[in-house]
């Protein structure tokens, strides 16, 4: 089978792989590069747990072909912040109890990060719309929306 060489930058680290035309970014992240914080929930773009930031946009890694990521930056939950430098979103998710099983959390965080990068003062409705593609079965979403709202800049009164 014909393969293609791809190079990307995952959370600031250069990565390369030989992929087939049908391999998805999710396959390559998990199978080739052991980037396990990107979860696999459906492989059909329905659940959002594999959401990553691809050159500034939130995408489902399972619907992105690996070759489409060639030459681009990929950011995952680990790239948003770390124990040494937590991102405000991560701190607010913990403080607000926005995490139960945690399986949707990496995808929620990447969607939320892109939202706040593009719309720093997002309101609750905008937050809900931004994470509408990220399913969560545990929390009822309220605490997730609370956490993102708390991380957003306050609207001018």
């Amino acid at each position: 089978m014909m393969t293609y060489s791809i190079e990307t930058n995952v959370n600031g680290r250069p990565r390369a792989a030989e992929v087939t035309a049908r391999d998805t970014l999710l396959d390559v992240l998990r199978d080739h590069w052991d980037v396990f914080e990107v979860k696999n929930g459906c492989e059909q773009g329905d659940c959002g747990v594999c959401t990553v930031i691809l050159s500034g946009k939130a995408v489902n890694a399972c619907l992105t072909l690996a070759v489409q990521a060639n030459g681009k930056d990929v950011v995952t939950a680990k790239g948003i912040g770390s124990p040494k430098e937590p991102h405000l979103l991560q701190t607010k998710f913990v403080e607000h109890g926005a995490i139960q099983c945690g399986f949707c959390t990496p995808g929620m965080l990447t969607s939320a990060k892109v939202l706040l990068d593009q719309n720093p003062k997002a309101n609750r409705q905008e937050i809900r719309e931004a994470i509408a593609g990220n399913l969560c079965r545990c929390t009822g979403y309220k605490k997730i929306v609370d956490a993102i709202e708390a991380a957003a800049a306050k609207p001018e009164s």
């Binding site: 995952t76 124990p83 937590p86 913990v94 995490i99």
Partner: peptide, 11 residues
């Protein structure tokens, strides 16, 4: 905050 929450936000 739950003790397991931090590991989950950091992936």
């Amino acid at each position: 905050p739950r003790h397991d929450a931090w590991g989950k936000v950091y992936g």
